[in-house]
Design a protein around this nucleic acid. Sequence first.
DNA 1: CCCTGCCTGCTG
DNA 2: CAGCAGGCAGGG
Length: 274
Amino acid sequence: MPELPEIETIKNVIEPQIKGLVIKKITVNRSEVIAQPNADKFLRAVTGQEISAMTRKGKFLILHLKNESRIILHLRMTGCLLVTPSDYPMEKHTHIIFHLSCEKELQFSDIRRFGRFWLIRKGEKDTYSGIEKLGLEPLSRECNVEYLKSKFGKRKKKIKECLLDQSVIAGIGNIYSDEILFLAKICPARSADSLTETEWERLAEMIPECLSYFIEKNHIEQEDYLQTKGQDYRNTPFLQVYGHAGESCPNCGETLVRVVISGRSSVYCPNCQK
DNA sequence: CCCTGCCTGCTG
DNA sequence: CAGCAGGCAGGG
């Protein structure tokens, strides 16, 4: 169920463990997690390749291979990556195992099976995964108040829905949109075109502040990550509104309210967030 | 634009 | 048992 800070955390934990290793063999337990073009082609193209790097874009992870093709991965709601010793027991919902050199494995598990892999070959245009449609990285310099206003300023959409629009800002999901709007003191149901200059400024400031704060909080050592099976992002103790409907606002003590915005559960403080 | 489907598991 | 879960594509 990871959003940008969690994907960043996963990348930081996994990358140093697999960089430079060779994919010797792949076990596919559920081929539907390989979205494109077909599982066999995927296996043939990837087997024997060295992993040169792992990067993140929005909520996507990208495994860069030595031959300049790349494996794109989206974890969706419950996808999980683990680097394990080669004799490590398989989790119940493990769908793909990359058997690597140095007696290691990269295991992909996913309870709900929404997660997907794509293979993009050298020079091939990625029209499949959706990665090309992503907007700016929220931690980039260009994702500033002018950009937000130019993209959202005239929309009648609710500001929370705007923050979830991956084609404008890549990586914010349901948790962090609530947290960001709480920090910016903006009600999630406000229409974007009603925001004042000050509110746009607060929003532009809180997006990177909130995300980088949680990247820091998520920080975890490789051993602890494996021990907790990649399930403990350690962010929950620090969430101020998400998951706290009915409790008191950490700012003012007013009861936090849950509403549904475009099908997503949203929590906010009716007193602090106008 | 909202709504559903995709899946399994956990909570009340 | 229904309802819900941190995502997204596709449909009407």
